Amino acid sequence: MKVIFLKDVKGMGKKGEIKNVADGYANNFLFKQGLAIEATPANLKALE
């Protein structure tokens, strides 16, 4: 799943980066902790 990092995550990515991560990792950790959001077309447009 493609995500946009909202904060730096050690060993994974930096704020503003777009990366592919495992679905479970994104849903169970990154999204719940507020560290990333899904890289949807609307979210990608908002990032620009």
Rank of each mutant, 00 (worst) to 15 (best):
M1F: 09
M1W: 06
M1P: 06
M1C: 12
M1H: 05
M1S: 06
M1D: 01
M1V: 13
M1N: 04
M1R: 10
K2F: 12
K2Y: 13
K2R: 12
K2M: 13
K2L: 15
V3Y: 00
V3R: 00
V3F: 00
V3S: 00
V3M: 02
I4W: 01
I4K: 04
F5C: 02
F5N: 00
F5V: 01
F5E: 00
F5P: 00
L6C: 10
L6F: 02
L6K: 02
K7G: 09
K7Y: 13
K7F: 13
K7W: 08
K7I: 09
K7V: 11
D8A: 05
D8G: 04
D8W: 05
D8M: 02
D8K: 04
D8H: 06
V9G: 00
V9L: 06
V9T: 03
K10I: 12
K10T: 13
G11Y: 07
G11R: 05
G11Q: 05
G11K: 05
M12K: 08
M12V: 14
M12P: 00
M12S: 08
M12F: 13
G13E: 01
G13L: 01
G13C: 06
G13Y: 05
G13I: 02
G13A: 14
K14I: 10
K14D: 06
K15Q: 09
K15A: 11
K15R: 12
K15C: 11
K15P: 06
G16V: 00
G16D: 05
G16T: 02
G16N: 13
G16A: 02
G16R: 03
E17G: 03
E17L: 03
E17D: 11
E17K: 02
E17R: 01
E17S: 06
E17N: 02
I18C: 07
I18Q: 06
I18N: 02
I18P: 00
I18R: 02
I18A: 04
K19S: 08
K19T: 08
K19V: 12
K19Q: 08
K19H: 09
K19W: 11
K19G: 07
N20V: 14
N20F: 14
N20H: 15
N20G: 08
V21F: 07
V21P: 01
A22I: 08
A22H: 12
A22D: 15
A22S: 14
A22L: 13
A22V: 09
A22W: 09
D23W: 15
D23G: 11
D23H: 15
D23E: 15
D23T: 15
D23Y: 15
D23K: 14
G24N: 15
G24P: 11
G24L: 10
G24F: 14
G24D: 15
G24W: 13
G24E: 15
G24T: 14
Y25A: 09
Y25Q: 07
Y25R: 06
Y25W: 11
Y25N: 05
Y25I: 15
Y25K: 06
A26V: 07
A26G: 05
A26H: 05
A26P: 04
A26C: 08
N27S: 10
N27V: 15
N27T: 12
N27G: 09
N27M: 13
N28K: 10
N28S: 11
N28V: 06
N28D: 14
N28P: 02
N28H: 12
N28W: 07
N28Q: 10
N28Y: 09
N28C: 14
F29R: 05
F29G: 04
F29K: 07
F29P: 05
F29H: 14
L30M: 03
L30N: 00
L30T: 01
L30G: 00
L30P: 02
L30C: 02
L30I: 03
F31G: 05
F31T: 06
F31I: 14
F31S: 03
K32V: 09
K32I: 12
K32Q: 13
K32F: 10
K32C: 14
K32P: 15
Q33Y: 15
Q33T: 12
Q33P: 02
Q33V: 09
Q33C: 15
Q33S: 11
G34D: 04
G34L: 08
G34Y: 10
G34S: 07
G34C: 12
G34T: 02
G34H: 10
G34I: 03
G34M: 09
G34V: 03
L35T: 04
L35V: 08
L35Q: 04
L35E: 03
L35M: 06
L35P: 00
A36G: 04
A36K: 00
A36N: 01
A36R: 01
A36L: 02
A36I: 06
A36V: 08
I37W: 05
I37R: 05
I37N: 02
I37T: 06
E38L: 06
E38V: 05
E38I: 06
E38Q: 09
E38D: 04
E38K: 07
E38G: 04
A39K: 01
A39V: 06
A39W: 11
A39R: 00
A39I: 03
A39H: 05
T40Q: 03
T40P: 04
T40N: 09
T40K: 03
T40Y: 04
T40W: 03
T40V: 04
T40E: 03
P41S: 11
P41R: 08
P41H: 09
P41M: 10
P41F: 09
P41E: 14
A42C: 10
A42P: 04
A42W: 01
A42G: 10
A42M: 07
A42E: 15
A42D: 15
A42K: 09
A42L: 07
N43A: 11
N43Q: 06
N43P: 01
N43D: 06
N43Y: 05
L44Y: 03
L44T: 08
L44D: 05
L44I: 15
K45G: 09
K45D: 11
K45H: 10
K45M: 13
K45R: 14
A46G: 11
A46C: 14
A46I: 14
A46L: 12
A46W: 15
L47E: 07
L47P: 04
L47A: 10
L47T: 07
L47Y: 14
L47F: 14
L47S: 07
L47N: 07
E48Q: 13
E48D: 13
E48F: 09
